[in-house]
Amino acid sequence: MGNFLTGSGWGIAALQSLLYIALAPLLVGWLRKVKARLQNRRGPSLLQPYRDLYKLLAKEARVAHTTSPLFRAAPYIVFTATWMAAATVPLLVVDLPTAAIADIIVLVGLLALARVFLALAGMDVGTAFGGMGASREMLIGALAEPAMLMAVFTLAMTAHSTNLSSVIDHHLSDGFVLRPSYLFALGGLVLVAIAETGRIPVDNPTTHLELTMVHEAMLLEYSGRHLALMEWAAQLKLLLYGTLIVNVFFPWGIGQGLSPAALGLGLAAVVGKLAVLAAALAVGETVLAKMRLFRAPAFLNLALLLSLLGLLSHVILEVGA
């Protein structure tokens, strides 16, 4: 525990968490840019998400007559919980004190906390759309969460630790070993990430078509700074899942010390990896159409099955060997 509690470690952890909220809109901007290019459009500038957030923050916030105080508290809780969850995922370097405070199970728990408050806020207004969004979001979440846990448990059992820093450390020191369990877990986690961040084919973040929206339906009544926080939290969640996938399964380049060189290399590596991942996501979103809601369970069951297969292939094939 001692090495976690050094001052410089906390400093880097704070820097890293600030980097998360600073980079999150950029990832969305990049994703939109690539998608626009694939659709033969020029698309908005990379910085457009920042401008949107600024615009929302500068606007007046309105809430409905019918809401309770929970509606106004929810954006802060959702944003904080998502940010805190993101802070536990190593972005530039491993060995963070935040990873010791909260391991991967806590990470999943914090994301669930954010989801619960998002759904409750959706139901608080007392409109049909809010309830609809909440009901669908909870369905997707209920099926995605076990798949996510099984995927991270595969990693945790391999590394004999639920601490994300240790998991990445273990993977790095192991060298490049092609483990079947990792492939299954990667597949499961990618599917979960798509569902949880509300991307096509499970949900469409740009739709406001009444009967198809899930995430947007819950945000319908938000405006001004409340909406900005909710949007920012959604962007953070995308960055969180992206970082989780690239840094855990492809950890090369991540810094193992606290020197400026290691930090710089880590930043360059993670930005490059995320750019590639986001481009792949954009291609996927361009070629796929959104599914009907009741096909989403099949999609998520596949994710759960893949993750469980990963875990089983680990305990059966890899533990004894």
Partner: peptide
Amino acid sequence: VRWVRRGDAWDCGFAPPSPRMQY
């Protein structure tokens, strides 16, 4: 922008929501 203003729910611009329309 400091004060939060109260108004009717927007609900995609349909008729003002009644309790019976809730989930």
